[in-house]
Structures are given as structure tokens and as C-alpha cells.
């Protein structure tokens, strides 16, 4: 078990990098997922088709394949995802600005993939709002945007928040894949390095990185439980 003390910096560094990509991908997925959800419930058929197509593709494709496309097809198309080098943001999330594009590729893949699930969680919430609410708003003369903004989304949010949390927890665990697509130093890749190159026994290292993931996911889960309890009270 000495590996936890000897290599604490490796675990801590891996935790920090995994946290970085998870925060960025969560923000990206929530924004993109909301846009896709709006597309899917929009009254304009082509937009609806676009939203549905997005969800169909990204929800049904394995994340590994999305990662492959991101890491190897984008370069083939001549892109190093430089649009993600957002000034200011790269000061906090240093990997965003480096010459090596794999952190950005992994971020794109995680965001695209998770957004499909975020969209469905949001839409489930919207469907939970009784149709009478939207009809009443429409009969009052509210536009589609106003209807969503003031009537439907505030109510749907309550029903979406718990499934959304589960989606984000799944995403944090999915981020373990990034180490196999060129990102050096995240939690799972650190485990690889410690076990195969430096010869530490596998089980203590695996326990160590599991703790790293649990530190991220358990508080999130606890928070969700709390929100759920408060909602139950509010619903009564």
C-alpha cells in the first residue's frame, strides 16, 4: 500500500487533470444538450429532425468510437481543435492551450457524447410538465421561447435534475477512457503508468484511482439525493 504515499503526487495530478476535463466537458455537455433538447421539441420540423438525428447518432455510438473519430479523424481533416484555445480559460485549464491537441480532442468527444444523454434527460423533464401548462401559456399569447423560458423549463428543471446528475456521474467515469487516446496524466492513465512501467502491484493502484473517482462522484450523488428529498417535500 506504500504506493499511495510514495506516489501521492501522481494520484493528485491525475485527479486534478480528470477533474479539469470533467468540469469542462460537463459545462459543454449541459450547454450543447440544452440546445439539442430545444431543437427536439421545436415546432419547426427540420430543426426537430436535426435534434433527433444528433441524439440517434451520439447516443447509439460507443464512446470509444466517438473518441477514435475525434482523435484520429479530426487531424485527418486538418483540424487540431484550436478553436478550444479560449483565451483566459486556458490559464486555469492549462491543457487547453498546449500544442498537443489530444486533451481538446478528448474534450470534444466527451462533450458530444454526453450532450445526447443530457438532451434526453432534459426532454424527459419537459415531458413531465403537464401539457396543460404549455397550452395555457400559449393561449395567453406567449411565444415558443417565452413559453419555454417562463413556464415549461422552470418546472421541468425539477424533474430533470436527478437524471442529469446521473448523466454527469456516468460522464466522470467515462472520462477514464481519455488516457487511451493520447491524454497523459489523468487518473486511469496514471494507474497504467504506475503498474506497468514502474511495477507497482495492480490492486493497490486500482484502489487508489477508484478513491480518486469516488471523491468526484460521491459528493455529486449526495447532492442529488438532497435535491431529490427537497423536491419530494415541495411536491407535496
Amino acid at each position: 500500500m506504500s504506493v499511495w504515499v510514495d506516489k501521492f503526487d501522481v494520484f493528485a495530478g491525475g485527479f486534478w487533470l480528470t477533474l479539469q476535463i470533467c468540469v469542462l466537458a460537463a459545462i459543454g455537455a449541459l450547454v450543447l444538450g440544452a440546445v439539442v433538447a430545444v431543437l427536439r421539441i421545436s415546432p419547426v420540423p427540420p430543426l426537430r429532425a436535426l435534434g433527433t438525428a444528433y441524439v440517434t447518432i451520439f447516443r447509439n455510438m460507443p464512446l470509444t468510437v466517438v473518441m477514435f473519430f475525434s482523435a484520429f479523424a479530426l487531424p485527418a481533416l486538418g483540424s487540431n481543435a484550436d478553436f478550444l484555445r479560449i483565451p483566459g480559460l486556458e490559464l486555469v485549464f492549462t491543457r487547453l492551450g498546449t500544442d498537443l491537441p489530444y486533451f481538446r480532442f478528448a474534450l470534444i468527444a466527451l462533450t458530444l457524447y454526453t450532450a445526447a444523454f443530457v438532451c434526453e434527460a432534459l426532454r424527459a423533464g419537459i415531458n413531465a410538465v403537464s401539457p396543460g401548462q404549455a397550452e395555457a401559456a400559449r393561449s395567453l399569447g406567449l411565444t415558443f421561447t417565452q413559453n419555454l423560458r417562463y413556464v415549461v423549463l422552470p418546472q421541468s428543471w425539477k424533474a430533470s435534475i436527478v437524471p442529469l446528475g446521473s448523466v454527469i456521474i456516468a460522464m466522470i467515469k467515462n472520462s477514464a477512457l481519455i488516457g487511451f487516446f493520447g491524454v497523459v496524466g489523468d487518473l486511469s492513465q496514471s494507474a497504467d503508468q504506475l503498474t506497468s512501467a514502474e511495477g507497482y502491484a495492480f490492486i493497490p493502484v486500482a484502489i487508489g484511482i477508484s478513491i480518486g473517482y469516488l471523491i468526484m462522484t460521491v459528493p455529486l450523488g449526495a447532492l442529488l439525493d438532497r435535491i431529490e428529498r427537497r423536491q419530494a417535500v415541495a411536491a407535496r
Binding site: 500544442d99 487516446f181 493520447g182
Partner: peptide, 8 residues
């Protein structure tokens, strides 16, 4: 390492 090394 962060800017120069890629591992697959």
C-alpha cells in the same frame, strides 16, 4: 510532459 509527450 504536458505539452510534449503523447501516450497511446
Amino acid at each position: 510532459v504536458a505539452t510534449q509527450l503523447v501516450l497511446f
